[in-house]
Structures are given as C-alpha cells and as structure tokens.
C-alpha cells in the first residue's frame, strides 16, 4: 500500500519565523523546542531542518502537527521553506520517530516548570481577564529553556492588532512579572481565526 501523501503548508510570520502545518501529527505530547543542532541530534526531523545549508536555522519548535522554524539568515522563506518541507518529508519517510523522547533533565525542567507555573498564573490572573474584554484568550502551551510558547484564540486569533497585544502587552508583562523569561513564540494559526476583534482594511 502506498504511504499517504504528506501535505505541508508554510505560513511565514515574518522574515525570521515561519510555521509549517503538516497533514499528519508529529509530536502529540506537548511542545518540543530545539535551540541548537546539538539539542536536535537524536530527533531526525529537527536535525534535518538544522542541517539545511545556508539557512542559519536558530530554533525549531514542534507541537502537534505544527513546526515553527526560526532562522537567522537573510535567505527568503521561498527558498528555505522548500528545503524545510523536504526535510520534514524525509524525516517522516524514514519510518523512525521524528522526535526523540524528551530527555530527563531535572535541573532545566525544574526551572522551566517553575517558570511555567508563574507564567500560567500571570496569564490566568492578569493577561486573560484583559484580552477577554475583546473576546480573546491566550493559552500557555509550554515553557522550554525559558521561552514561552503560546497560542492566541477567540478575538485575538487573526486580529489586526495581535502583534501589538503580543509584543506591547503580553511580552511587556512577562518582562515585568517574570523577568527570567527569555522570549515568547506565538504558534497561533492566525489565518484560521473566524472572529478577529479588529479586521484590517487597506489605507
């Protein structure tokens, strides 16, 4: 029997970040983040993406059927995206698990777990009551290596001001209340938002 066709849709967020939605699940147990080729060495999918020549990949984040790739190089996503798609297909075609099980790392995990608790509390007590006024919600997906992964929903998903909420609101509050957080990654599929609070019009 032929293997099912793997469909991959690329959704660039900006010049350095791009999401790839894959037609089959890659990692069901939460989020995995790889910040270097060394971290990815036992995970064929992430290792293949880091190995793309000239792309200068800085980070690979895998959650469910979504792969978020962060690059440092100036090569456009048109070129890099095709190589990422090939890398994902090759990793899946090999038959091996695309990602190695998450290593036990008590010290780092403990730190991330502590951060997770603090960020979750901030989201519950302050961030979500605020975005709820515009029909929105922010879901904390995971904290890895002090980087917060989140998803925006409801009125925030696809909202024309989502970037402002993310950077000026959520990121600023994290800097203030949980300064150990090093960054945030939004893994929202904003194109699928059906009820954005603010919709854009050409000006």
């Amino acid at each position: 029997m032929d293997a099912p066709e793997i469909r991959i849709t690329a959704e660039p967020i900006d010049g350095s970040r791009c999401k790839f939605m894959v037609s089959q699940p890659l990692h069901a147990a939460g989020v995995r983040r790889f910040a270097s080729p060394a971290e990815a060495q036992d995970s064929p999918l992430a290792a293949a993406i880091f190995a793309i020549p000239g792309a200068e990949i800085g980070e690979v984040i895998v959650s469910g059927n979504l792969v978020t790739v962060v690059k440092r190089g100036a090569t456009p996503w048109t070129a890099v995206g095709k190589s990422v798609g090939q890398a994902i297909r090759a990793a899946l075609a090999s038959g091996a698990p695309p990602l190695a099980p998450k290593a036990e790392a008590p010290v780092a995990t403990a730190d991330d777990d502590t951060l997770y608790e603090r960020v979750a509390q901030l989201f519950d007590e302050q961030v979500n009551p605020m975005v709820a006024r515009h029909g929105g919600r922010v879901e904390l997906i995971d904290v890895q290596d002090a980087v917060v992964m989140l998803r925006m929903m409801g009125g925030c998903q696809g909202c024309g001001m989502a970037d402002v909420t993310l950077r000026q609101g959520i990121e600023a509050m994290l800097q203030q209340h949980v300064p150990a957080v090093k960054g945030i990654v939004d893994i929202t599929d904003h194109t699928a938002g059906t009820n954005p609070y603010f919709a854009a019009a050409k000006k």
């Binding site: 950077r167 019009a201 050409k202």
Partner: peptide, 22 residues
C-alpha cells in the same frame, strides 16, 4: 496605529529589530 490597519506587524517588527522603545 489605527485598529483597522494592515501595517501593524510590519511596523512593530521593524521597531523590535531596531530595538526602539515603542
């Protein structure tokens, strides 16, 4: 930034790249 502008992401990202206080 008017709330209906398409320009949000481009300007916010540019400000971040330049490291300006926004």
């Amino acid at each position: 930034l008017p709330t209906t502008t398409y320009r949000t992401a481009a300007f916010v990202e540019a400000a971040r790249r330049l490291g300006v206080e926004l």
